[in-house]
Design a protein around this nucleic acid. Structure first.
Lengths: 339, 339
DNA sequence: ACTGCGGATGGAAACGATTACAAGATCGTT
DNA sequence: AACGATCTTGTAATCGTTTCCATCCGCAGT
């Protein structure tokens, strides 16, 4: 283990040139072939590698991008992160991952911290969008791409999906396959996604001309599978659905468990539809019909958008919407063939 | 959006003190209460935040730790990452995540890159451990903690598990519950984990005095669920197991699917045991018995070990082994009650 | 032979902080 | 009133690069 890192100065001395020339020789400035050769040889001999920190300080870029996620336990965010990591590292950037809690304060802390300049940009998917968070987002000196819906009038780079419409797809599909009593198993409605799904459900039911009873829609305390089980239990004690639309694949898995434990068969007695189309949906038994919100795609787009923004800090904020898509699997097969 | 970040110099001027005093006032050096107040006020007014890059250059620390993972799609690594992120961020460090491919070259590139000094330490879990990789690991100027087995004689900070013994637990459990024909569904055997599991299987069978037929053990091309399905198919065409030990939960899920599609019931006809005890095992139907290798725990320990090492760069390399634990679920219930 | 020109080079000034050192202020003690 | 001890403060060096600028060289054109 060599005791300490060689600096550019030492390389330069070793090669018999000035630091300036050494720098140019290594990073492709104007330098004679002879110098380049000598410097490269010296660098190799000493095992020199450029110091990222010093370089960053000088050039004003860190080559790092940050991804802030509420919960690394959620497969959706993991899928997104994977896609982002791919794009980002292909562009020569590193990815810093931070897990903010679900609380807006953590998010604000993170955005503030970002102004320390440890990253050149941020991708964030706020789960609760308070005015305070919005304010902080706009004030940031570092480019930010927001994944998820934004209040009207906020012009930040943004990639979103239409989960309201996604719920609509699910409800329509269930209605078409002959389900009469479609229930909603939602996550907390004080969150951005929770609100969107609720709206989607009500709109879709209205469009079908169906009334919605209070007991027909229930909210879990969280987007996790445990919370899903609890909420599904209360749903089933107050209502008798033949189909459940869930705000999330995790919730859907929880619901399927509860159904099974009550002796109800999926899809014969009750159809279940999840949302996000994570790996879980594919692996579940029976296979879980799920509304894909294109997590990987959103991640990919967000990353590209951010890189793009780094190239042009003055262009107008752009917004991309990824359309939801229903992925059919066994959990929502019709009770009997539809004529 | 303020046009450009205020520097400490500007804060100092604003507060009517020298940069040195300003620095001390903000970072808790010796400074009079009056100065502290004035500087803090000025900093607040200008919206000053310290520049992480400049600070890092001076103090020689980046407050970043890196985690290199072969495949962000594998739930084991995600669990590990989550645990690591928790420890690391609680200690005031940021986490840089890089996904090396499965190839040793990528890993080497990553370790080299680390010498640029963008992180103060690295946690890495190499899946294929070539001499070249080992050499690179020891040469690194940045502290490294290796998660997974190391060749004998390599003294690096290391946290490992005993998956050989883990497979033993699984085999013993199945034998005790009356299974006669126990097969192994392994991952690639040119990987560190693959080799360990193979060894574990052979040892355990020998200990039971059972012969192992060639067709009784099969290797998937990958630790994924698709590869698991393919490998399970070939296994079933050449052998008729009443129990399958899988190197991985993903492989186990693949196997369960194939079994089901062939009309075989789990656990009545064939018992299945997975490994890693990921969320999937809990969510699978039937619940998947799985050998826990303590991913979160290993992540937590690795992170703590690394932080520890940063505190004392001269202490001897330490090694911790996390013992495997069998988590019983429905997929390996005995065919009929064991007397 | 002189001028002009382009490319290669070295000196030195940044980037934005921290910190060693010395000098100045403040206080109590004799 | 003088002294030393203690606490604050400012000056300047430093971390390791990149890059502006001026110099210098060789070479072609006249």
């Amino acid at each position: 283990m060599p005791p300490s890192r060689p600096t550019l100065t030492e390389v330069a001395r070793h090669a018999g040139v000035s630091v300036a020339s050494a720098s140019r020789a290594l990073s492709g400035g104007s330098a004679s072939p002879a110098t380049v050769a000598r410097v490269q040889k010296a660098a190799a001999q000493l095992g020199y590698v450029v110091d990222a920190t010093a370089r960053s300080l000088k050039v004003g870029r860190t080559e790092q991008l940050a991804f802030a996620v509420a919960d690394l336990g959620n497969p959706v965010y993991v899928a997104m992160m994977r896609a982002i990591e791919g794009v980002v590292s292909a562009a020569g950037f590193r990815l810093v991952v931070s897990s903010t809690g679900a609380s807006p304060d953590d998010e604000i802390g993170l955005i503030r911290g970002l102004n320390q300049g440890y990253a050149d940009g941020l991708i964030v998917s706020p789960i609760r969008m308070t005015d305070h968070v919005v304010a902080e987002l706009r004030q940031s000196r570092v480019p930010i791409v927001v994944v998820g819906s934004l209040p009207a009038g906020v012009d930040l780079d943004n990639v979103r999906t239409n989960s309201t419409r996604g719920v609509g797809l699910a409800v329509a599909h269930l209605a078409e396959s002959g389900r009469r009593a479609v229930a909603l198993l939602n996550g907390p409605t004080d969150t951005v996604p929770g609100r969107a799904r609720e709206r989607g459900f009500l709109q879709a039911m209205r469009a079908l001309g169906r009334k919605v009873a209070t007991a027909q829609s229930v909210t879990a305390t969280d987007f996790t599978h445990d919370a899903g089980e609890k909420a599904a239990s209360t749903l089933l004690t107050h209502y008798e659905p033949d189909a459940i639309v869930c705000a999330n694949d995790l919730l859907a898995i929880g619901a399927m468990r509860v159904l099974r434990s009550r002796g109800l068969n999926v899809p014969e007695d009750v159809a279940v539809v999840g949302m996000d189309d994570t790996d879980l949906a594919e692996l579940a038994v029976p296979g879980l019909t799920s509304v894909s919100l294109g997590s990987e795609e959103r991640g990919r787009i967000a990353a590209t958008m951010l890189l793009d923004r780094l190239g042009d800090r003055t262009r107008a904020a752009s917004r991309v919407t990824v359309q939801p898509k229903l992925v059919l699997r066994a959990s929502s097969a019709p009770k009997r063939p539809v004529r």
